[in-house]
Design a binder for these strands. Structure first.
Lengths: 148, 148
DNA sequence: GTCGCTGCAAAACGTTTGCATTTAG
DNA sequence: CTAAATGCAAACGTTTTGCAGCGAC
């Protein structure tokens, strides 16, 4: 597993350890769809390691972010959501304001213009984040309610 | 004052009232720089009406957002920040990851591409939000620390 | 045997809400 | 007089932290 190896290398380099709990959380993360919440991850990790506490999930996710394997987003209100950063090309998000569904998209032109703007302002870019909020096609017909 | 009139009209239309506390908060908001926090607003409002509670600031800000006079942003971690929505053209934000400074910019090409992406996906856009995170020119030279 | 990791509970944080009271209309 | 608005404190949901014990190396 590519990602596991990458995580392992970082842990070793920093004198950190590989535990079965950590393995359960990382595996849960890798097996999850994009934009999972900590609670969803906790439930999945507990299927393998029933005693996992939620603090551990938070701590592990922070580690994965530092390593560059996970990305976090806060769409609208609720809890922070996580997605893989490794092996997944950069993309932006379309968020439905009615049902909460999130769609990913890539628009090279936008990426390029962002680079230009940043360069012109003299910034060294670390990250960027674009969210478009609107009603998705399904929610435009019929009174579907908020689900996610 | 244009904005005050707009707020007044909405209040009347909805059977809401214009109190001196509300006036203090709205004035504080209008007199503040962009991207103020609730705490900053509270401090400023208290200069005129010392007893204001923070719940009132939150409630008033929510009202201003509903009316379309204020916009909220959550850059990175901290508290929600507010800026005027009326009379200020749409813009995006460059956030310095070192000092927290926020610069506004407009890039019509990005706006246009966002519209195209949304239309292609069948979404009806309500809002969009683009943040670019990086080191600002000042923070690139010298080890300036996080301030905001 | 070290020192990092863990679960738990408690704290922290920003925000919202319930309620008794005040106040605008 | 009615109902909206207020301040306070308590509640909320999410995330972080302190700590004593456990477990990897």
């Amino acid at each position: 597993m590519e990602v596991q190896a990458r995580v392992g290398a970082h842990l070793q380099r920093r004198g950190l350890r590989w535990s079965s709990t950590r393995d359960a959380v990382v595996s849960a993360f890798l097996a999850s769809p994009h934009h999972v919440t900590v609670d969803e991850l906790l439930a999945r990790a507990r299927r393998r390691e029933p005693g996992v506490g939620h603090a551990t999930v938070y701590r592990t996710l922070r580690l994965l972010e530092e390593i560059g394997v996970a990305l976090s987003h806060r769409f609208g209100d609720g809890p922070t959501r996580y997605e893989p950063a490794a092996g997944v090309p950069h993309h932006d998000h379309l968020v439905c304001t009615a049902c909460g569904r999130v769609v990913e998209f890539v628009e090279p032109g936008i990426e390029r213009l962002q680079e230009e703007v940043s360069r012109a302002a003299g910034y060294v870019v670390h990250a960027h984040r674009l969210e478009i909020h609107g009603r998705c096609p399904e929610c435009r017909r019929g009174a579907r309610e908020v689900t996610a």
